[in-house]
């Protein structure tokens, strides 16, 4: 035993293992230290925090807000998450169908179990349109219907440069297909001053800090008593809704519920 140790030392390898270990760690962490450059058009790089994402400037600010509030209203009343994404053009080396599927999945449109998301993708310069339909909505919006909405509502309106009216009419048409009983909020989707924006910031912040503080305190106390923290954890943290709205989200915000897509929908152009 002792001889072995001596031998090792003689070989001058007392530093060898630690160095090897550090090298190993380094290579392991390499991707974390130098992350691969994120492509601007990479679906994962886009931030889906609203129902409408317009990077091509086809919609005016108030139009975008109105559309978002219509979609948010529809989501709240029927749980179906419809999104509108407008981009300047398709990134190279991808197809419209593949890209819109990636977008829909990155945005996590629709509720997890219901797969009831829908994504309308508009590419300004390519003059292309795609309606991506969540697996759970395929029965209600068949590919043929989606194609018809593109051909008869979106394309003619876009040809007249009427982007907002076209998108809104298409969305209302699709909403009607999904839930005929749905009636847009007063004024046909007119934007009610969203209560989220009027939510006073400071009191909310204080409330949040309060909750966090006490939940930490709570956990520590429970620890000391020897309880398992999971059973007695603060309600706020345990019940994270898988979709829908957390406690303090404004009504304009969007949070994907993780619905599934499998390539249903239709493509078109104008």
């Amino acid at each position: 035993m002792k001889r072995l140790f001596v031998k090792k030392n003689l070989a001058g390898s007392s530093l060898f293992l630690p160095v090897l270990f550090i090298l190993f760690l380094f290579f392991l962490l390499l991707p974390a230290i130098f992350p691969p450059p994120a492509c601007a058009q990479d679906p994962a790089a886009l931030r889906f925090d609203d129902y409408v994402l317009d990077q091509a400037g086809l919609l005016r600010v108030e139009e975008k807000r109105e559309l978002a509030s219509l979609l948010a209203d529809f989501d709240q009343k029927t749980t179906n998450q419809f999104l509108v994404v407008i981009l300047p053009s398709l990134p190279p080396a991808t197809s419209l169908e593949l890209y819109s599927l990636e977008l829909a999945e990155a945005a996590k449109a629709g509720r997890a179990g219901k797969d009831n998301g829908l994504l309308l993708l508009i590419l300004r310069d390519d003059r292309k349109i795609r309606i991506e339909i969540g697996t759970g909505l395929e029965e209600k919006i068949t590919d043929g219907r989606a194609g018809r909405v593109i051909r008869e509502i979106l394309a003619p309106a876009f040809q007249r440069d009427e982007y907002y009216p076209g998108i809104k009419a298409a969305m209302l048409n699709l909403m009607n297909r999904v839930d005929p009983s749905y009636a847009p909020a007063a004024g046909g989707g007119g934007f009610p001053e969203s209560d989220g924006q009027n939510l006073p910031f400071l009191p909310v912040l204080i409330l949040v800090l309060f909750v966090v503080f006490f939940s930490l305190l709570d956990q520590r106390r429970l620890y000391r008593r020897g309880y398992s923290q999971t059973t007695f954890g603060p309600v706020v943290f345990r019940h994270r809704p898988s979709g829908g709205f957390g406690g303090f989200r404004s009504s304009g915000g969007f949070r994907g519920g993780g619905g599934g897509f499998r390539g249903g929908g239709a493509s078109g152009g104008w």
């Binding site: 590919d143 043929g144 194609g147 018809r148 051909r151 249903g264 929908g265 239709a266």
Partner: peptide, 14 residues
């Protein structure tokens, strides 16, 4: 037109 859409959708799903 609708059948073509259905077909294209199926191809895409496929």
């Amino acid at each position: 037109a609708a059948l073509q859409d259905e077909l294209a959708g199926t191809e895409n799903r496929l």
